[in-house]
């Protein structure tokens, strides 16, 4: 580390990483505190969604992917369900 880096490093990097830490903590703790007062609904939500889809198509429960990104103002939940080939879909639909 040269003496120039020494001054640059101290002044800039330290506050930058500490504020990243604060922001990350605020987001994750906001979600965890909510979770403490009520049951985590995600497992149930996923089961319900899969059950609804399964009424229409024969799906493999192993091919359901849940992706979450918790944010400060907004979170996104992406549920990816792999549907079988169209022929299989028609079979289930026809059987109803």
């Amino acid at each position: 580390m040269s003496w120039l880096d020494y001054f640059r490093g101290r002044r800039q990097e330290q506050p930058a990483s500490a504020s990243a830490a604060k922001e990350r903590l605020q987001i994750v703790l906001a979600h965890e505190r909510i979770g403490r007062t009520r049951e985590d609904f995600l497992p149930k939500l996923q089961q319900d969604l899969v059950a609804v889809v399964a009424r229409y198509v024969a799906i493999d429960p192993g091919k359901v992917n849940v992706n979450l990104d918790r944010g400060g103002d907004m979170s996104t939940l992406a549920i990816e369900i792999e549907l079988p080939a169209p022929s299989a879909v028609r079979m289930v639909a026809g059987a109803r």
């Binding site: 990350r24 994750v28 497992p43 429960p61 192993g62 849940v66 979450l68 918790r70």
Partner: peptide
């Protein structure tokens, strides 16, 4: 941390794959 949906206990209890 922002991407955690399920955890090891959910898997053991059969709530998630």
């Amino acid at each position: 941390e922002r991407r955690v949906v399920f955890d090891i206990v959910n898997v053991i209890s059969g709530e998630a794959r």
